[in-house]
Amino acid sequence: MTVGTSEGYIEKMASVVSHAMLPSVIWALFFGSGTVGTNSDAWSDEERLQTYHSMVKEFLLPRAGSSAFIAEAGDFSACASWWPPGSHQPPKDLPPQEDLHDLLEQQPQEGKGTSKLLAAFEREIQKVKTELIWSRYGREFWHLALLGRDPRKKPALRGAVRAVLQPFIDQAAAEGKPIWLATTSAHARDIYLHFGWQLVRTVTVEGHNQWCMILFPPSQDSTSKRCSMLKRSMRYGGLGELVNCREQVEQ
Rank of each mutant, 00 (worst) to 15 (best):
V3I: 15
T5G: 05
T5R: 15
T5E: 02
E7L: 02
G8V: 02
I10T: 03
K12H: 12
A14P: 09
S15C: 07
S15P: 00
L22I: 05
W27I: 01
W27P: 05
W27T: 01
L29S: 03
F30E: 04
S33M: 05
G37C: 11
A42V: 10
L49V: 00
Q50E: 08
Y52Q: 04
Y52M: 10
H53C: 06
S54N: 10
M55H: 06
K57E: 00
L60G: 09
L60C: 13
P62I: 01
A64M: 07
G65R: 10
A71Q: 00
E72F: 04
G74L: 06
S81G: 03
P84W: 02
P85K: 08
G86P: 07
G86M: 07
K92H: 05
K92W: 00
L94T: 06
P95Y: 00
P96C: 02
P96G: 01
Q97D: 14
L100R: 05
L100H: 12
H101N: 08
E105C: 12
Q107M: 08
Q107I: 03
Q109W: 02
Q109I: 00
G111F: 05
K112L: 15
K112Q: 15
L117K: 02
R123L: 13
E124C: 01
K127I: 08
K127H: 08
V128H: 06
T130I: 11
E131M: 07
L132W: 11
L132F: 11
L132S: 08
S135F: 00
G138P: 08
W142P: 04
L146Q: 11
G148L: 03
G148E: 02
R149A: 06
P151C: 08
K154G: 01
P155I: 04
A156I: 10
R158V: 09
G159V: 03
V161G: 07
R162C: 09
F168I: 07
I169C: 09
I169N: 05
A172E: 04
A174W: 01
K177H: 10
I179Y: 04
L181P: 14
A182F: 14
A182E: 15
S185P: 07
S185R: 03
A186G: 14
A188F: 05
R189Y: 04
Y192N: 07
L193P: 00
F195W: 13
Q198G: 12
L199D: 13
V205D: 04
E206R: 12
N209D: 14
N209R: 09
C212A: 13
M213V: 12
I214E: 10
F216Y: 14
P217K: 03
S219N: 03
Q220V: 11
D221K: 13
D221C: 10
T223W: 15
K225Y: 12
C227S: 14
S228Y: 09
M229K: 15
R232F: 11
R232A: 10
S233Q: 11
S233L: 14
M234V: 11
M234Y: 02
G238V: 11
L239W: 09
G240Q: 10
N244I: 01
N244S: 04
E247D: 11
E247P: 00
Q248L: 09
V249K: 15
E250R: 15
